[in-house]
Design a binder for these strands. Structure first.
Length: 291
DNA sequence: ACCGCACCCTGAGCGC
DNA sequence: TGCGCTCAGGGTGCGG
């Protein structure tokens, strides 16, 4: 679901609701693989703590705590982080909403998929984390504790350079799109922005990495940075489940050029956008513009 | 090093 | 209406 822009927009909008507020109590759902730190331990570690800031590392949100520990959250495919004031209109599925009375649709009522519920000493709005598919993750790190998932991440996609891509692509036989999705090389790019960046850089997703020239690496890096920055400006892509922390939609889906536009005309040349499978992911590109 | 696959889940959309 | 199927912004771990 969320890639770098969606995680970054979430970070910016949820930070004011989290930072500096002492956590009185954390409620969770039952233990599941969603919890890399078990619920009971998580509750103990967070009770009475205050988040100092909310940072983003790749697609992870990391909040340093006032005791030196860190709370780490990954949104997975369907993760949503939002304040209690958010409208349930977009947070819940259409079927779930249909079961609600009009009054109940106004504010969000935690449901079975609401895995984290932060309550604060100030009695202000609670903060919820909801994840229907539970592909997201939450964990607590002790002061100074490292975590392999974070340690392995490559350069942040907002700061990727042609040089980084050039070095990573040499002698690699894999499709350039697969390389972009590899978080250990560049972190933050997912299926939407890989396709969008490759279209803007006029590169075919299946091109072997080592066949990408130096100049093309520069163009690709620039395309990655600009498409991500533009998406952040517009609030991210709300194509399926993503909503911002206030429950509203992002706007970047209106600016997509290829992703989920199979059969529709390329906005550059009019050729029908083609959809193939690369690395087990649906992949959209223009057979004419992208070589 | 890299590919394909199974797996972790739930829900929407579609054809029949 | 309902069933069965496919698909989905994520990532890990395995065998080959």
């Amino acid at each position: 679901m969320p890639e770098l822009p969606e995680v970054e927009v979430t970070r910016r909008r949820i930070a004011p609701l989290l930072v500096g507020r002492r956590i009185r109590r954390l409620e969770t759902t039952a233990p599941s693989y969603f919890f890399l730190t078990q619920p009971a331990r998580l509750k103990r570690r967070l009770k009475g703590r205050t988040m100092l800031r909310v940072e983003r590392i790749g697609k992870y949100l990391v909040a340093p705590l006032d005791d030196g520990g860190r709370l780490v959250i990954h949104l997975g495919m369907t993760g949503q982080l939002f304040g209690a004031g958010a409208s349930s209109l977009r947070l819940l599925s259409a079927t779930a909403r249909a079961a609600l009375t009009p009054e109940a649709q106004q504010g969000f009522r935690p449901d079975a998929h609401t895995h984290l519920r932060f309550h604060f000493d100030d009695d202000g709005p609670a903060v919820f984390m909801r994840d229907v598919r539970k592909f997201g993750k939450v964990l607590w790190l002790a002061p100074g504790e490292a975590h392999p998932r974070l340690e392995r991440l490559g350069v942040d996609a907002l700061r990727v350079t042609g040089e980084v891509l050039f070095r990573a692509t040499r002698k690699r036989d894999r499709a350039v799109k697969n390389l972009l999705l590899d978080q250990t090389i560049v972190s933050g790019i997912g299926n939407i922005y890989a396709d969008e960046a490759l279209h803007r850089a006029k590169l075919r997703p299946t091109r072997r990495a080592r066949r990408v020239t130096r100049a093309e690496c520069e163009e690709l890096a620039a395309a990655i940075r600009s498409v991500l920055e533009r998406s952040i400006e517009t609030g991210g892509s709300s194509i399926r489940d993503y909503v911002t922390p206030d429950g509203s939609d992002g706007g970047f889906q209106e600016e997509r050029r290829v992703y989920a536009r199979k059969g529709e005309p390329c906005l550059t040349c009019g050729t029908a956008v083609r959809c193939i499978v690369v690395g087990q992911r649906s992949t959209h590109y223009c057979t004419s513009c992208q070589r």
